[in-house]
Design a protein around this nucleic acid. Structure first.
Lengths: 111, 111
DNA sequence: TTAATATATGAATATATACTCATATATTAA
DNA sequence: TTAATATATGAGTATATATTCATATATTAA
């Protein structure tokens, strides 16, 4: 045995580039959080669910703008919805991403 | 005294939209992390400093591409550099952002 | 000063993105 | 079925962004 506690027999200081899939997931995750409109939407719905129209009203955005961005977030599984009649109530669906957002808001506000 | 422990006398469930400055900082921070090239650069230099050319060689990128992206990261104070002759050694300069990146890479790799 | 080397920068291009309008779709109630 | 309402979607437009090439700038050594 050596003093190298790594799983593989690689040099401790060797650099490993990120594989394509990881890179894609990471960049998509941050891309979702890089737009002001999506940030505001997530910040709104992170505490309770809202319908599309409610989101549009609270944030003073067009219905289609909200719908497009919700589709974006839905594709990444960052939000989910619950149907009640013709109304769709959206809420967040990824604790990790909400944590990233909250951390960063916190950090931005206190620095 | 009431049971409301908040600093302000607002409703507990009242929604507060983010102010413009916070929104700007948060979106810029995530925008920095939303590009594959910048992710790879930060992932490389988060452990030790590298010159511009070293970064370009390790990541198989053009020198100008690296330089442009380093300027982007420098403007946000996410990286800093140290001069040695004509060589500039870049390293990260924002622990919080590196943490965000590491968290998310970790999360992406294990899910 | 000159040459060599490392890095930065500006312009051009290609691509991605966000928003809006108009309209389609879907659900419910009458 | 029809009307009313909520949401989704597609096309068009404007803007932002990433990359590249060519070249400028800066530092050092000869």
């Amino acid at each position: 045995m050596t003093e190298n506690k790594n799983e593989e027999q690689s040099e401790p200081n060797e650099f490993h580039d990120l594989d394509e899939e990881t890179l894609f997931i990471v960049s998509q995750t941050f891309k979702a959080l890089s737009d002001s409109t999506r940030i505001r939407i997530l910040n709104l719905i992170c505490n309770k669910e809202y319908s599309v129209n409610e989101i549009a009203e609270h944030l003073n955005l067009r219905q289609s703008t909200v719908s497009h961005q919700l589709r974006f977030l839905k594709n990444l599984r960052l939000v989910k919805y619950r149907r009640e009649g013709t109304t769709l109530y959206y809420s967040h669906d990824d604790e990790h991403v909400i944590n990233l957002l909250k951390q960063t808001i916190e950090h931005a506000e206190h620095h």
